[in-house]
Design a protein around this nucleic acid. Structure first.
Lengths: 374, 374
DNA sequence: TTGGGCTGCCAAAACGATTGGGCAGAGAAG
DNA sequence: CTTCTCTGCCCAATCGTTTTGGCAGCCCAA
């Protein structure tokens, strides 16, 4: 039923030349001369037969498979993963490469199996991605193949990595709220001590301090990063004596709980309480009412950056010893309707009207994506 | 820097035998006899050198690449895609295969490029997935390679496909509400005329009729399947004369809008209004308050089923001509807290307490996953 | 001693491409 | 008429496997 695919031999026969010549023609080999008429014959024959060179045979011969591996810890379950993969794919396809995607489910054993399968298939390089920003230790088998980390850092020499610029995210969130005129802020941070938590708090605090807020004016509490955690933390904050007029949430899910707490307490968003989230989680940030202003994580861009780096290394061959490039990418602010000026502010510096500023990623007042070489 | 990988030749040298013997030993070739001592020597040598057979060379020789392609239209952006991929991967890995994932972004041109790249890499088969349940036309290039559709149907002969059992989903939703004692129902359906919309309405109506509801007791309206659409539809329904006590929503996003409408009208969920969603969209269904009872789509299971089918075809070689198997898979009901008995019902048949029934997929009162050969 | 049947191993031909090193033939130069 | 230089093409080796078809020995029976 499935007749075998057409090979170079058939093209050669069809064109009445040797397979050598076919190869020379189709690859436009520099040093080799072929008569123009012959070239035409070959190309026509190839087209007529619908010839597609067998990639496996090519790879075997050239030691280059035009294939890269993408290893993720829980690739499948989160939409974020998809964005990284998409970024990787777009770059890969632009170079005629394709991507093997595998996910480990955090099981070392599975990971080893998968790395083996990838190496057996002679991938040119590997993207090693984490679903949340963290420091990882690189599996030793990966030493033999070019590797770039996405959304993760590591201390292995010569391995490039890219992570979100968490500090900038914290700063941007603060800027949005301070810009609207808020002077009593709160930050509901992740209880887990992870890079994102440290970075965002650092940035948020820095800007608050720069704006001259006193210690009392910035409360930082921690919570589980789900709606229940956000709810509990928000109840506590909003029922206290000096309740904040604006809350920055570690992520959008947590912010959902804050919405509920506010609603229960009769506080209207954004008039009585402004909220900024993090993640721009689809179907959440634009699903709540009013739409949540939030900071997007640069997953797609990280995928792109990492894959470009990867191809650089692959093509560069043995690297000049210099330190591998690493970078932190900034995500845009997505303005929706959860931030307004507090009642006592008439005309704040960068006032935003709360109602008609629905924005998509990257457009509409979003902070520019800035690349920093660290 | 990257010394070349170890080959069968090196193993042969190390063990002091020919490469033929190494191959025979490592593959346990049936008809061939090798002295047990020699076998040991070979295996030890292989282990010592960390030999991994080069998959490309194997594939070239055996015409089997142990590689399958997964083509999706927007694989990257939705979490559902991840589940299908995961299902495919789990099956694949259990057979030492790996998966090429590519997504087309609905661009025919990109799709063609990608299919070409996959075929060039001699994939053994292809999974062709749609992000939403629909009928597709199969790209003609795929005729030459075993193909199975996921979340899509087609009329091409001999192509297996799997889709969700939409009718059963509609029935299950109705059962949940009727079981709680509701007698005035509404269904907010998708305005788009797609299989999911037809199927769910059919199932929902059927059960309502079977329960003896009159025409007036079941209102069906349509809306855009986003929070705004749900909101608008719900306002209309809930402000009408005979407002329903329960609403079945085409999907969870739409249900978010229904929550808002109910809140604005002072209706408490689930006491004054019960809601059932569809999709069990993560971070939505368990993020709203109270948690949304909903029907899950069997994405993972579809991925598994399709991939098993695919391997069957790959291994079966030219197929006996019989019609290809197709199936509709049922998704489980995920019980949360958005359904209660209406006030006037004292002791309904299958009463559910609204508060403590948080369930995870597949467990906790979920309808069994049933397979139907159609 | 001869022949047959095992046992244990190996040589060589694929698979489908790329690539370095020719080798004829035509035309130009001597 | 040689010789030399191009031009235009092809041979054969190679990448790393699998697999077919032997081929030596050895043991045993006749």
């Amino acid at each position: 039923m499935t007749q075998r695919r057409v090979t170079i031999k058939q093209v050669a026969a069809e064109a009445g030349v040797s397979i050598t010549t076919v190869s020379h023609v189709l690859n436009d080999v520099p040093g080799k001369r072929v008569h123009p008429d012959t070239k035409d014959r070959v190309r026509e024959a190839a087209a007529r037969l619908g010839y597609l060179p067998n990639s496996l045979a090519q790879s075997l011969r050239t030691q280059r498979s035009n294939t890269i591996g993408f290893i993720g810890d829980e690739v499948a379950t989160t939409p974020f993963a998809g964005k990284m993969i998409l970024g990787a794919q777009d770059v890969a396809l632009s170079r005629d490469a394709v991507v093997f995607v595998v996910s480990t489910g955090y099981q070392r054993e599975v990971e080893n199996r998968e790395i083996e399968e990838l190496l057996r298939r002679q991938v040119d390089g590997i993207l090693y991605a984490s679903m949340y920003h963290r420091a990882v230790e690189l599996p030793p088998q990966l030493a033999s193949v070019p590797t770039v980390l996405i959304n993760a850092s590591c201390t292995t020499d010569g391995i490039p990595w890219v992570v979100p610029d968490e500090v900038a995210g914290g700063e941007d969130a603060a800027d949005v709220l301070l810009g609207a005129g808020h002077r009593r802020l709160a930050f509901i941070n992740d209880v887990d001590e992870i890079p994102a938590a440290f970075g965002r708090e650092e940035g948020f605090r820095r800007r608050a301090a720069q704006a001259g807020l006193r210690d009392d004016d910035l409360q930082v509490v921690t919570a589980e990063t789900d709606p229940a955690g956000g709810y509990a933390a928000a109840r506590q904050l909003l029922e206290s004596d000096n309740r904040p007029t604006a809350i920055f949430c570690f992520n959008d899910r947590l912010a959902m709980g804050v919405y509920r707490a506010a609603t229960e307490l009769g506080l209207r968003i954004p008039h009585d309480l402004s909220i900024v989230g993090f993640d721009n989680q689809e179907f959440v940030a634009d699903g709540v009412f009013p739409g949540l202003t939030t900071i997007e994580l640069p997953h797609y861009d990280m995928g792109v950056w990492a894959t470009e780096q990867l191809f650089d290394r692959i093509e560069g061959g043995p690297r000049k010893a210099g330190p591998a490039p690493t970078t932190r990418l900034r995500g845009p602010v997505i303005h929706r309707d959860s931030v307004a000026s507090p009642p006592w502010v008439q005309d704040p510096g960068e006032r935003r009207e709360p109602s008609d500023r629905r924005g998509n990623a990257g457009s509409d007042g979003a902070a520019p994506t800035i690349r920093t070489n660290k």
